[in-house]
Design a protein around this nucleic acid. Structure first.
Lengths: 129, 129
DNA sequence: TCTATTATACGAAAGGTTTCGTAGAAGAAG
DNA sequence: CTTCTTCTACGAAACCTTTCGTATAATAGA
């Protein structure tokens, strides 16, 4: 349960983590297939990436079968938090509010999303009192 | 006005951009001094970084004087937008709402900030109709 | 003018990332 | 058992980032 020492993933690593989050545990073959929907990538390239990510503790693997099965060792939301905190610090001088404003400004949130956000804001306000 | 082809800055480059955004145009010497408040960095290291960033179009420079004067070639908010969009895509599967929720959840926005955010939400809602 | 100081330019080392070729183990098919 | 296929492991090339040493040009002061 203890948070291991996790290096910040590179862009390519994040791409693979994304696949694992969306698809759950995967063999190298499957990761490679999904990866190839977006960009051509050799099988051994994907394999090597996963091996490196394994050494960095970014993924775990089950070696029971001949085809190892990889899974992300961090949840998507934990990683989101890590990356968001970093971006906050490096690009937004720590101002979460201005990050939120930017994000809201750039995208066009749906009615539903707006509602959820408002609810969260209300909850935060209530708890502040 | 046309958006130039800008590579995503590395962490070190972003650190320097941050200095330029906060302090306006600077000589290498000044950037290096400010940098050294946070971490020891050789003068020529800073110089080289700025030269590379110049080649990448991340900064502009005025060569009129012997000491060149560097400035960021992108505004902080433009860069924030670029980085936020990238994070959104790579780590949040494009869901701005969930990014906003995470950001709000992690930080504890001040009353003032909450107010501003709510105003923005209301404005978005109004415009949606 | 000669010397010390302050700049820029450049090259290259050290380390990390990404890619892929090749070797060889494990398993399936004949 | 032999051969074909499917894996993993490993090494190394190509490329990028970061750091700094050295060379050299411009300027200021004695």
């Amino acid at each position: 349960m203890a948070k291991r020492l996790l290096p910040k993933p590179t862009d390519s690593e994040l791409e693979i983590l994304q696949i694992l989050w969306e698809n759950g545990s995967c063999t190298v073959k499957k990761v490679n297939e999904i990866l190839n929907e977006k960009k051509e990538t050799g099988y051994t390239t994907t394999l090597k990436m996963l091996q490196i990510m394994y050494e960095k503790n970014l993924v775990e693997r089950n070696e029971d079968e001949r085809s190892h099965i990889y899974s992300a060792s961090v949840s998507q939301s934990d990683m989101q938090k890590i990356l968001l905190d970093k971006l906050l610090e490096t690009a937004f001088s720590g101002s979460a509010a201005s990050l939120v404003m930017q994000a809201l400004g750039n995208s066009i949130p749906s009615k539903d999303e707006l509602k959820k956000i408002k609810e969260l804001l209300n909850k935060i306000e209530r708890e502040q009192k």
